[in-house]
Design a protein around this nucleic acid. Sequence first.
DNA 1: ATTAGGG
DNA 2: CCCTAAT
Length: 316
Amino acid sequence: MEAGASSGTGSFPAEDGEIWVPVLSDPLDGGSNSPTQAEIEVYSAYLDYDAMDFQAVLEGPQDEHDIEKLFGGARSATYIKEANLTHEIECEFYSPTSDHGMIQTLAPATALPEKEEAPVTMALGGGGEEDKKRKGGGKGHPLPCQRRSMRLALAATPLEEGACATFIVDLLDYMPKSGWRHRSRLRSARKRGIWSLNTEQTFLLPNHLGNATCFQDMSSICKGKKCGHRKNNDHWTYEEMKKLVDALYISGVGNWTKLKHENFSTSVRTAMNLKDKWRNLKKAYTGNAKKRILPTLDKDCVEKIQKLASKMKLHL
DNA sequence: ATTAGGG
DNA sequence: CCCTAAT
C-alpha cells in the first residue's frame, strides 16, 4: 500500500527533469507498490544467476540482441524509460526454478569503479543456503509458469543526458487491456522498436500521467482486472521470425506440429503459435505497405514471406 | 491429435 | 493468443 506520493526520494510531483518509474502492484501476488519501486517482468526459460551480468542489466542492452545475452535467453519486452541512478539499487531476480529470489545490489551505472568483483549478492528469505542448482523449485511460486517478476527499487533522480539506466519492462503485460490511456503509446513505442526513450518521449513522467495520483492510478486500474495472465506473452524476436520463415521456405507452409518438433523443439512456441505467427507475418507483408507494422525484417526474409504467400495463392 | 480460420 | 469446427 502506501503509494504515498511523497515518500521515497524526491518530491512529488516530480520536478523538471525528474523521472519516476511507474509503480504497479503485481497483479498476481499483490505485491507492495512503493513509489520507488518498479515492477519489471522478465520472461525467461531460465535465469542463470551465475552467468548473469547484473551490471549490464542495470545499464541496459544496447539493442534487442543484447536482451538475450543479459537475461540468458529471456525475452523481455519494452524499454520504457531512462533514468539516471544516483543511488544503489536493489534488484530482485527470480528464476522459475527457485523458491525465492535473489537480491543484487547494483551501483549506479555512472559511478562504477573498475571491473572489480561481482556485486554483492545475498539470498532472500533468510536462506544463505540457497542451492546453486535450484532444482526443486516451484512450490512457492506466485507465478505459474516461466514468468518471474523482477522488482527494482530505485530512487527518482534527475535525468542526465548520456548516462541513463534503462529498464527492461513490459508494462503492457501488466496493464489492463483498457482503461489506461498510455497503453497505446507504449504499444507504438514497442512496435517501432524503441528500446529507450529520450527525454522528449517521457510519456511516463508524472506530468504526462496527469497528476499526483498516477501511481495509484496505475495499480488501481489494474486492480481486479485481468492483466499479466497471458500464458506466453514474450514477443517474437527477429531471430525467431527469421527462423520460422526460413523453415517454412524449406519445408513449406503447414505441418505445424512437425515444424515445431524439428525446428522449435526447445522453444516456448507451440505449433499453433507458429501457425498464428505465420498468418500474421503473411498478412503484414503482403497487404499494402502502409500496414506493415511488424519489426523491419531484412529484405531476404521479407522476400521469402512474399514468395511463400504468392505460392500459396496459386494453389488455391 | 491437428489444423484452418475466425474472434 | 484463444476457441472451435472439421478433419
